[in-house]
Amino acid sequence: MIEILQQIVNGVAIGGVYVLIALGLTTVFGILGIAHFAHGSVSMFGGYLTFFLVTSWGFPLLLAILVALIVGFVLGMLIELLAYRPVRNANHINAFIVALGLTMMVEGLNLQFFGHEQVVIPTNLSRVFDIGGVTIPELRLYVIIAAALLIIAMTLFVEKTKTGQAIRAVAENRDAAILMGVNVKTIPLVVFAISTALGVCAGVMVGSLFAIAPGIGEWLVVKGFAVLILGGLGSIPGAIVGGLVLGVTEALAAGFISSAYKDVIAFVVMIAVLLLRPQGLMGKA
């Protein structure tokens, strides 16, 4: 029993990171219908930037995260304005190519600015809590709490604020939203800014829990899209449920079936879910 609980705790931490990545992807996809492949690389940029601010400029960790979030916010708006807006009314393939090009560009910039070495964001959080035989490292606990708070904040923002309602309105029916007076030119800017800031948070979590290195962004975005499909395209609750399901499934698969095939097993579960619910766990039929 303790082993199962331990594996669930293991899975929830990584699942929280998947949720943050998927939330960013799903809001962009829901509003604009863009598969924003560069999201993983942008997340890594946020992680690298935090690492750089902490280790090279001596910023306290929380201040460095705050600066990285602000930079992420602005970067997101720039990406929308300079990369995606010019092709918004063009064929979908154009946005697809822009997304691929942007991925390569951001990966290249990461490599150029931060080098090829694996980096780990230093946190000095090394305590381990033991709760009834289930061990939780302090850092993992904070990651789980932070992910939960961000998910709640994002949900409240989308459900309770006017901007959130406008985002949902554009996602539901763009033409109707225009008729209702929603400024549809501003909404994509806000969506990309929030999405990128969430991605930066995920990058910081990956960088402190594990590591940032070239190629990690690709891995992260693949997982993010898997969650997107599993939870239902464009669905925010789906991203939350899907991320946690994928994280916990991977941990349980590695612990009880085969560590060599944990990714395969997680994707088999995803395919099985889609066979039963083609629209995803929380998607609309």
């Binding site: 594996q7 293991n10 899975g11 829990l209 594990f210 941990a251 590695a254 560590s259």
Partner: peptide, 20 residues
Amino acid sequence: RESFGLKDRDMSPQLTKIRE
């Protein structure tokens, strides 16, 4: 014999199994 991939950085599921 538990495995991990070269890009894996979270081996806590395998280690949990080993602990048991």
